[in-house]
Design a protein around this nucleic acid. Structure first.
Lengths: 231, 231
DNA sequence: CATTGCATGTCGTCG
DNA sequence: CGACGACGTGCAATG
């Protein structure tokens, strides 16, 4: 990893064009040749960047650029697309190269897949008497999170989301419309299960004849592991 | 901006939990107190981070942590949510602080709004004889990019996207369904216009009775500015 | 302030 | 390798 603090100007061309006027910034070059241009603000997204796989070459400035004070040109090219980043460097204030070694990687907990796994073990939260047919039930238009058997003989398709929004209702609608055509499954009900569901999504779901279920992640986790129960 | 290369471990807690085992990484602290943890890989997204507004405080390591080799704790807290980042620092290899000054900002060109503006001037690309009624035609469920008058008396609703995907078809479907209820506009056709349209989106659009138009941004820009024409 | 729709989104997973 | 959905999505424009 190479960290350069420099006064620089940047031009990006690819899916769009973007330009940065000269200013003092951090130019971060990773071991794989990818580049990030960061300013002292914004959030974690750089002003400009190039994702790997890419190649960094140092070019000679054009005479007009030298005239304007450019001492170095870094050109970063994507190897798969024709995206290109051209960095004009006017002055280097710091230049630090260092080895980082292997990254053990990020360990996450609490995402949707966990929520889905918990609900698969606690399908009674969706409704009484339901039994799990399959998780990730495959269809032509994508997998349905949970497919349940209703005691009265019908089927329940469950879409699990951390947050229920309009997209989730659309997704569930497509699934239910498809399943309804299968006589071995009909009648089919659709249920949107989420930790929170936005009012618009609730209204749209109701309009489409879909049910909503609010999930309590902590309670579900507590049920899952009796050693963590408080009572 | 402060750049620290250190062997560190990180724990994030907020919407989810995430953990990084000890390894050598870049810890970037911006002037506003926001923090980015970068490894030598991935793309521009840090392994962990905290977005502003946030506050960084240095804590004393617990005795057990000191025992394990921790020399310093940085705790970064979000001021609005209860998100928290706890960085255990085992060894500092570099520590560089520098002033960057004001950022003139990124200038972009070529996004969807530009595509929409160009198409508004070249509605014949959607179909022969069409005339523009309005850009950003307001409806109760959101603005329609372009509303066109068909010479035969009907209306054409155009959804402009850089890339046409399933979401765009859903959006256009909602708009067309709504417009069809307006007797002054009926009959209504829907058109998805994009630089590229994914096969699934094409299929879904066809199934919904919507048309697709592929846009050539460079050609449209060329038409827009005669000085740039090659012939 | 909440909502909506875009993004050079990025990132995993699965066919 | 392409397609699809999730993301600590972030972010700006808008009502």
């Amino acid at each position: 990893m190479r960290l350069v603090i420099a006064r620089c100007a940047v031009d990006y061309s690819g899916r769009l064009g973007a330009h940065l006027d000269p200013a003092r910034r951090l130019v971060l070059v990773k071991a794989d040749g990818s580049v990030l241009i960061h300013a002292d603000g914004g959030s974690y997204k750089p002003l400009n960047w190039m994702t790997p796989p890419c190649e960094l070459v140092e070019l000679e400035p054009e005479p007009a650029e030298t005239e304007a004070g450019v001492v170095m040109i870094w050109q970063v090219s994507q190897l798969k697309t024709d995206d290109r980043l051209r960095i004009q460097i006017f002055e280097v204030f710091h230049d630090l190269e260092t080895e980082l070694g292997t990254e053990p990687g990020l360990v996450k907990d609490g995402v949707e897949s966990h929520l889905q796994a918990l609900l698969a073990e606690q399908v009674e939260l969706v409704g009484p008497g339901l039994r799990l047919i399959r998780r990730e039930y495959a269809t032509a238009i994508g997998p349905i999170d949970l497919l349940l058997r209703d005691p009265s003989g019908g089927t329940v398709a469950v879409e699990v989301k951390r947050r229920g929004e309009i997209d989730g209702v659309e997704q569930l609608t497509r699934y239910v419309d498809l399943l309804k055509r299968d006589p071995t499954l009909a009648p089919v009900r659709g249920v949107l299960a989420a930790q929170a569901i936005k009012p618009q999504a609730q209204v749209l779901a109701q309009d489409r004849g879909l049910d909503c279920v609010i999930l309590d992640y902590d309670a579900m986790r507590g049920m899952d592991d009796p050693s963590l129960r408080l009572f």
